[in-house]
Amino acid sequence: MHTTLEGVQQSATPAIRGPLQVYVVVFALGLTLAAPTRLGQAVAGLCFLGLTIDAVGVGPLRWLGVPVFFLAPGLAVVLVTAPGAVLYELGPLTVTDTGLQTALDTTVRSLATLSILAYLIASTPVSTVVLTLRKAGLPNVLVELFLYVYRAIATVMAEAERMHTAATARVGFGNRRATLRTMKLLASALFVRTIDRVEALDESLRARCYDGEPPAQAHVESEGYGYALGVLVLLVGVHLL
């Protein structure tokens, strides 16, 4: 049985709930992106990783493997193309001090932001996020864009889950060689299937006469002010070190 994103959200028990959860995530993202050191970014990532595990458990975290898988090639390119003092050479590939520092900075910052967004996506119903964004005065076109991106993320997760289950059933991860071959096939097929599913989503919205108004009416009260204050104080404190 496949685990859907909506199912995880419905069963989640986050310490911070409602619009407050969205505000905390947005503020934490801003602090993480502006953090001058990797320490602040790492602390933010670990903090929200813990909040995610507390809310939904460890299982859904495997979905983070999808963005990490696509992030890794870019980091490898940065590692061997940045100019600077040579640290290591392997044939035509050269690792420099600048490339290593840039790759480390990008890795920590990316993983931290992924952890924060994972907490929001895994434990917050989309209706709560949409209502919060609308109350904050965000233009409808941006709210609509968020809905499309959200559905695309959910589609990627669902497709990756199905394809991984199918590959496992066919012993696609039996050894290292088979694993590499299977991962290569899954990556290419996942991209194509995701595009097809997103196009189908767009067609279904048009068929239902979607006019740009987000379908979100439920109201949720904010909870967990103490946890929110503790998280923000921790992040600001590390940021000021």
Score class of each variant (00 low, 15 high):
R17L: 13
A118M: 14
R208F: 03
L46M: 07
G30Y: 08
V68G: 11
V86E: 12
V238H: 00
Y210M: 03
A154Q: 08
A15D: 15
S127T: 15
V198P: 05
P214V: 00
V108K: 14
G212W: 05
C47M: 15
A228I: 03
T165R: 11
E161D: 15
H219T: 15
L186A: 07
L147H: 01
L5I: 04
G7W: 08
D105S: 06
V156W: 03
L29M: 15
H2N: 11
H2L: 14
T32S: 08
Q9L: 03
T96P: 01
L90M: 11
G84H: 10
T182S: 01
A55P: 05
V156A: 09
V192Q: 07
L190N: 10
K135T: 07
V171S: 15
G30A: 04
G74P: 10
G212V: 01
T182N: 02
T4G: 00
T37I: 12
T81F: 07
S188L: 12
L229I: 12
G59T: 08
S110A: 12
A154E: 09
V192K: 09
L133G: 00
Q101T: 14
V238S: 00
V43S: 10
V171D: 15
L39N: 01
T96M: 03
D54K: 11
H164M: 09
G230W: 02
G174W: 03
V25H: 10
G59H: 10
V8G: 01
A72L: 13
V26N: 04
L20I: 02
G224D: 07
F48G: 05
L205Y: 02
Q217P: 03
H164I: 13
A35W: 04
L46C: 04
A15Q: 14
F191T: 14
V156R: 04
A216P: 05
F191L: 15
L87W: 11
L147W: 01
L185F: 12
L235D: 02
S188K: 13
A55E: 05
T165S: 13
L31E: 01
E159I: 14
V80C: 09
S11N: 15
Q21G: 10
T96R: 02
A136Y: 03
V58E: 05
L64E: 14
A118W: 14
L133D: 01
T52Q: 09
G224W: 09
F70V: 14
V108D: 12
A166R: 00
V66D: 11
V68P: 09
A85V: 12
Y210A: 03
A112C: 08
L190C: 08
G74L: 13
D202W: 12
G84Y: 07
Y88S: 06
T106V: 10
L114K: 07
V22P: 01
V141L: 14
A42V: 06
L142N: 03
R62A: 09
R162Y: 05
M183D: 09
L46W: 02
L201W: 04
V8I: 01
P125T: 08
I116R: 08
F191V: 15
F70H: 10
L5K: 06
P214F: 00
Y119L: 06
R177N: 02
E223N: 12
P214N: 00
S204I: 03
V26K: 05
A15G: 14
A216C: 05
D54H: 13
L180H: 11
L117V: 10
Y210T: 04
A169T: 01
H2K: 12
D211G: 09
L235H: 03
L79E: 08
L104S: 08
R176Q: 08
Q41C: 06
P73T: 08
Y148K: 08
L51Y: 06
L5P: 06
